[in-house]
Amino acid sequence: MTMSPTLSRRALLAGTAALAAPLAARAQKPGSVTAAIYPGAWEEAFRDLVAPALKKSYNIELEMQALFAVDQVAKFAASRGAPPFDCFVLDPGPRATALERGMFEKFDASKLASRAAIPAALVDEWGIGCNAQVVGIAYNPKKLPKPKGYADLFKEPWVSRLGLTGFGTTFGTVSLIEIAKIFGGSETNIDPALAELKKVLPKIAAVSSPAALPGLFQQGQCDVTYTNTQTVTTLKDRGVDIEFAVPETGATTFLTTLHIAKGCENMDAAYKYIDTAVSKGVQDALQKPPYNFIPVNKEVALGKDLPMRSLDEMSKFVTHDWSKINPLRGQWIDRFNREMAK
C-alpha cells in the first residue's frame, strides 16, 4: 500500500459544501466508536454485521457517519484538530491524500487478535485492508462471446454493446488506465484511451454514471463493461446473465483500507472495531449475498466466482501508483465528462 499524493482543490471540495460550516466538537458516548463508512451497501453491511459482532464481543456500540471517501478527507480537514470520527474507510486515492496530510495515527497491527490471519501485504504502519477489489470485464455470456481483453471492447460484437463510465470511481480509473496502456499510454497518460473511445463513441451502447451502469446492464441496455467482481456477483445473485472475464493483460486489484483518525481519543475501541471488521466470522458473512465483499482474512474460503483461489494470488494482479494518479484525476474526470457525452 504505497501512495502519497495530493487531491486537487476542486476534487476535494466537490460534493462537500455542507462540510464547510464550522464543526462542533463531537460528543462521543462512553463505550462507543464512531466510524466513517461509505453510504449504501457498506453502511448496511456494517450495521447488519459489524455492529452486532462488536457489541457482542466487546460491548462497544458502533456509531457510523455515512461519507464517501473524498468527503471523509474534507470533513477531517475542516475539523481543526477535533476528529469527527475515530476511523476512516478509504480507497487508494483518498487514502494517499489523507496519508500525505497526516490524518492517520500510526497503526499497530499487533493489537489485533486477527493479525495472523491477514496477509502481510494487506497491512502497513498506517492501516489495514478490510476488503479487496478485483477489476476486469463483465459480459453477458448469452449475448456475447467472452472478450479476451480490453482491446476487444473496441471491436464488434462487443463495442456496440459496451457500457462506458469514467474516472469517478477507482474501478473506472484503473480500467481506463489499462485501456490507455494497450494503445500506448501509461499510468499518467490516458490520451490514447480517450482518443480510441472517441473513434467508437457513436457505436457505444451507453455512457453512464457508475451508479447507474449496473441497472443498465440488468435491463439489457448494455452487455459488456469494465467493473469489479462485487458488482458481477451482486447482479448474478439477482438472476442477471453475467460473467467476469480476466483481461489478457491481467486483472487489476486494489484495497479498501481502515485507518485510525489522528487525534482519536478512544484508541482501544478503534482497534477493537477494526479487529472485528477483519475477523473470520464477520469477513465470512460479508462475503455472502447481498454484500459480496472479497474477504481479507485467510481463514475464510473464497467464493467460487472469484478469479483466484487464495489471497496470495492477488500479488500477481495489476496495481497502480496513486501518488502519480491523484494529481491528474480531477482533470481526467472533467475531460471524460466533456468528451464522452452522448
Rank of each mutant, 00 (worst) to 15 (best):
T16M: 01
L19Y: 05
Q28A: 06
Y38L: 14
Y38A: 11
P39E: 09
A41N: 12
R47K: 15
S57K: 14
S57C: 00
Y58N: 11
Y58H: 15
E61F: 01
E63C: 04
V70Q: 09
V70H: 06
V73H: 04
A74W: 01
A77C: 00
R80C: 05
G81M: 07
F85E: 06
F85T: 11
P92T: 08
A98L: 04
D108C: 03
A109D: 05
S110V: 00
K111F: 00
L122T: 04
I128L: 09
K142S: 15
E156W: 02
R161Y: 01
F171I: 09
G172R: 06
S175R: 10
K198L: 15
V200N: 09
K203Y: 06
A205C: 10
L213I: 09
Q219N: 12
Q219C: 02
Q221Y: 13
D237F: 01
D237Y: 02
G239I: 08
A245H: 09
E248F: 03
E248P: 05
T249F: 02
A261L: 06
K262F: 07
G263H: 10
A270C: 08
Y271K: 04
S279G: 11
K280P: 00
D284Y: 00
Q287Y: 00
N292R: 15
K298L: 08
E299K: 14
V300N: 05
P307K: 09
S310R: 10
R329M: 07
R335F: 12
A341P: 05
